[in-house]
């Protein structure tokens, strides 16, 4: 077992993990942060997207030990003081989810997209940038609308 520590959603956390423990397992099983989902488990679907040191990654394809010392933000870290993040609010407003399984990854990818490309995003850019996030309900139309609106409000 390896001892690791991270800052997750602003809080210092630590734990002992096997080297093979994936970041998503550490978040869900050790920390109980089950907002981050495991969808395909083959790094295709993006349900597991979290931010590590400010960039979006697929947490099902990262070793927890390799993230020792990192700052991690999960979907649980978006809302502040009981108030939804503008991107979460936009997903609610624009019906950007159906079953909701892909939503945490969509939200984290969307916030990362705004961080990289700014608040004014055209539809084509959003669709292109969502390459790594799959919605099995195929609700992309409203997801795109939600991201466009959420970006403006960030």
């Amino acid at each position: 077992m390896s001892a690791i520590s991270m800052k997750v959603n602003g809080k210092a956390v630590c734990g002992a993990v096997e080297p093979r423990t994936l970041l998503v397992q550490f978040l869900r099983e050790n920390l109980g942060l089950t907002g981050t989902h495991v969808g395909c488990d083959t790094s295709q679907c993006g349900a597991c997207v979290v931010h590590v040191n400010g960039t979006a990654i697929k947490s099902c394809t990262a070793l927890a030990v390799a993230c020792d010392g990192a700052e991690v933000t999960t979907v649980e870290g978006l809302a502040k003081n009981g108030k939804l993040h503008p991107m979460q609010e936009a997903f609610r407003e624009h019906h950007g989810l159906q079953c909701g399984f892909c939503t945490p990854g969509m939200l984290m990818a969307a916030v990362d997209l705004v961080n990289r490309k700014g608040k004014t995003l055209d539809e084509e850019t959003i669709r292109h940038e969502l390459e790594g996030n799959i919605c099995r309900c195929t609700g992309y139309h409203n997801i795109v609308k939600a991201i466009q609106a959420g970006a403006e409000n960030m």
């Binding site: 993006g46 979006a56 997209l113 990289r116 390459e131």
Partner: peptide, 8 residues
Amino acid sequence: GDPHVRNR
């Protein structure tokens, strides 16, 4: 790949 893969 995709944006998240490119970050890693």
